[in-house]
Design a protein around this nucleic acid. Structure first.
Lengths: 227, 227, 227, 227
DNA sequence: AATGAATGAGGATTCATTCAT
DNA sequence: TATGAATGAATCCTCATTCAT
């Protein structure tokens, strides 16, 4: 009288993907703390035990969820990023995309920030490597910038990476707590500009320094006097 | 015939402090996940139920722990900070102190980053206000800097705050996972320099600036000579 | 709407005893493999969690059950044993009582034989000590017997203990599998006699050895011839 | 496109033997509680489902493992035992071999003692018959001894069997719990001597016997002299 | 005969919080 | 005010066995 029939045999890839999709679905509905394996299995149309054929445990499932997300993000941006020229533009693009990702996947963001990154096994996880690749693009760009003479040579690329991703995280926690939204465009602009200011060789453009102003006025007076 | 005598009556303040101290002690020994109310009670020399007379629940106790820590930190720095002059120096001091605090209290740091800040009640907590005050000192300093003409006027003080505390958090997660230490002095220098570069009005290349200064002094002499 | 009311506060000793009694009851009904904590709690009139206030875990509860049983057995026999004189009688009494105990508590017997004794923590358990005391009475008696000259002096008391308890266990497994009963009286007699034969100084009484027979008949012939 | 090729067809006997060998291998590595069918299949180079073509279930596999072991033991000893003469020697040999078997196969010993013998199907298993044959050799020998007049006629051969195998089991549990070793030679000697003492017609005190012998020889001389 | 994915029941344990004494 | 026994919900994971392919 069992209503549920034996789930048809399926390619492991498909089944894995199904479970991950189900997990993501349940996760976005319930959040981390109320995420129950039974519900994931239900949603995936399999039995609890079957999940454990594909994932060692709940933690691994969580990690895989995040890893897939990171792979998506990285591959999504790859082409566009190559099409963008100029250090400033490229950094601004990464910042903007990161903000968008957080905005679109607040649950996954929290999962990573709050649960996966603090995990003792994080360091040895694939997620760590993916995150390294994801954030490492900033390092890459900064180094290119230094080589091409656009950026100051004594810049720590790693620090720039931390500044970007750290400040974004710090700024978006209120949103992640569901306490309001943020404007990704504006924030990206603002942040990109400040970062750029801190690392580029260019002089301030928007304003003229007081020193220069004084120089100029003095020269003006001299000019008027003697010419 | 009970051997353990009834805990002597005590001023609520003292009792509260005792429990908080006990909680902090147990917490630093066990970490967040193994923090059990029973052990806190034990350590404080009271009974489980008694804790609930002084704290609504475990969450409140956790918050109070962090709040006390923040108050300590704020009051510890207050005097020194007032004695320091110069925007750059003041920011460097705050950065450095924050790094030291993380280094000395990794457990409390994690408590805040991982558990309290993501809490839905964080926003309405005293901890939120304290954190606001704590990180707000950066905003304060930046604004002073702008007023005093040392910093660019179109700087977002809030963003500077996020850059500083966010990047520090991002950088120190490995340490918080107990995967190694960091050098607070070096990191503070590096970060302070980069931030300063991003927000100050000064030019960055060490070579142009002295040239301008010489120009100015020459012009001054010429001015005095001929006018 | 909960039917079950909060269980009244009770002395720890009483509660412990209640739980142990409940466990024993459920155990004798279900056997080891189907012994569920929930049912024990139910039977004891408490909630599952309450059991864990009194017993660290299921294993400890099992051990306590057996320990209580051993204490009962030891104290039950103590007085009678002191009243019995004679090595043979005393050994026979112990053998008999042990058989009766197995007959009366086959479940507890199996619990000890099959589950507790093989447990890696058995050696450091109180049960081990009690068992030592329980079986040690044989060692005691044998040693007394040696001192009093009733037993051969080169007897290994420990081996006698193993012979007694080992053979009883070996013999009673069929009964423990519920495949029939045994006659404790007969078995005790038989075993006691054989053991006695093996350890006492007395000569065979029931039969005359062939050597002696031959001696006697020779002497008879000599007697007839010469007298 | 599967890399792993379909296990080549093989004679059922060979396959059965492979699986049994694999099971024994895994078992000696993992012990009873961690013995998983999947790992046995792996080790045997087949798939989980295939095991069930050759064995009804796990229990049957376990029984077959033990049965094979018993057959080995019985056939190993057979020839040697026939070559040994004298009741005492033969018993001593069996005792010694049994101790050696336990020493060499503690896991299999535990399997039988702890899991198979208590099993409700034990009685109707081949293992039961093999065990009967194995321990029955003692009964056989005792009966021969009685017939040949070496042993007391009122001896219960079955009880002797229980004494031997029971006491050995009782004595070796500490070893089976991996709490130290035992000396098979010494233990065999000790046990054989005590058993012998309990069942043989000979007197036991080392002093009286020579006296009787002297008596006899004197009488013999007298007899020859005068008759 | 072989495969191996799918099944699915089954249970000990934790611990924040309450409330009768 | 203090006590501390009682509460009880909540869930991950294992693994022998089956059966569609």
């Amino acid at each position: 009288m069992s209503i549920k029939r034996r789930a048809s045999r399926m390619s492991p890839e498909k089944r894995t993907a199904d479970i991950l999709a189900a997990a993501r679905h349940v996760f976005s509905k319930r959040g981390y703390d109320d995420l129950v394996m039974a519900e994931i299995a239900d949603q995936a149309g399999v039995v609890e035990g079957s999940i454990y054929r594909y994932f060692r445990n709940k933690r691994e499932l969580m990690f895989r969820m995040a890893e897939d997300w990171f792979e998506e993000m990285i591959s999504n941006d790859e082409q566009t990023l190559q099409a963008i020229s100029g250090i400033a533009n490229r950094l601004r693009f990464i910042i903007h995309r990161h903000l968008i990702s957080i905005q679109e996947q607040p649950d996954l963001s929290r999962l990573v920030f709050q649960h996966l990154r603090p995990d003792p096994e994080y360091r040895s996880s694939k997620l760590f490597e993916l995150n390294r690749a994801y954030t490492g693009r900033v390092i890459q760009i900064v180094r290119e910038g230094v080589e091409e003479g656009e950026l100051r040579s004594n810049i720590s690329a790693v620090l720039v990476r931390d500044l970007i991703f750290g400040s974004i995280e710090h700024r978006t926690w209120a949103f992640l707590r569901k306490e309001g939204d943020f404007n990704a465009d504006e924030l990206a602009d603002e942040l990109a500009r400040l970062i750029w200011k801190g690392i580029s060789l260019e002089n301030d453009t928007g304003e003229i320094s007081p020193l220069l102003e004084r120089l100029e006025s003095t020269l003006c007076r001299l000019e008027k006097e003697f010419l």
